[in-house]
Nucleic acid binder design. Sequence first.
DNA 1: TACTCAAATCGAATTTTGTCAATGTGAAAC
DNA 2: GTTTCACATTGACAAAATTCGATTTGAGTA
Lengths: 104, 104
Amino acid sequence: MSTVYAHRARVFKAFCDERRQQILELLRNGEKCACVLIEEMGLPQSSLSYHMKILVEAGVVLGREEGKWTHYCINKEGFEEAIAILREIASPEETTGMCGSCCK
Amino acid sequence: MSTVYAHRARVFKAFCDERRQQILELLRNGEKCACVLIEEMGLPQSSLSYHMKILVEAGVVLGREEGKWTHYCINKEGFEEAIAILREIASPEETTGMCGSCCK
DNA sequence: TACTCAAATCGAATTTTGTCAATGTGAAAC
DNA sequence: GTTTCACATTGACAAAATTCGATTTGAGTA
């Protein structure tokens, strides 16, 4: 079962879309409610909701409901997890050389 | 021009696929030639080639041609760039509070 | 020259994502 | 109760990504 790789792929799916990158940049300024993001992004409400769901489920954005509004903000823990994954991949598992089939 | 966000999205496109995550894990052990990756991944040659192109063009994998073989390895610089992007997004641009439209 | 082999590219089918209007949901206000 | 408002969800469609066999490219070898 390669659930590990599926999970990693899901985390980075949050970052691989241009619009989601724009949304994340907007959230750098601090918490914002969906209505503001809709206006600043120039997106229809359903489209923004679609992207926010992906961001929240990936763990990189937090959604806080307050009355009838939902406020979104960057989830630093999610970013730390993503960074940890990248660091792990970039650090060698053990010291091996070349492949044994076509190198001598 | 939002080329910045398009570039960021392209970088993380390398990481948002389950098979590419598996390929990256295989490369943690060190440089490997395509023929080995094909065998270990159980993919047809054209499919592996497709994924390797995405990984190389994103800058997270290096391809080294030697005779008729191509050897691939992790490109640490590419990972550092990705990590730098994540760090930048996760660090607040300025100290703002809530949105001005529905918070008081 | 021709032959071989590894990898890239093509082409067509399938799968997955993204978009957006319409509808549903749930909480607050009346 | 009803209405209103913000957001989620649905469904149909368009666009992009992925798969994989077939073909091409390009370097090494005879």
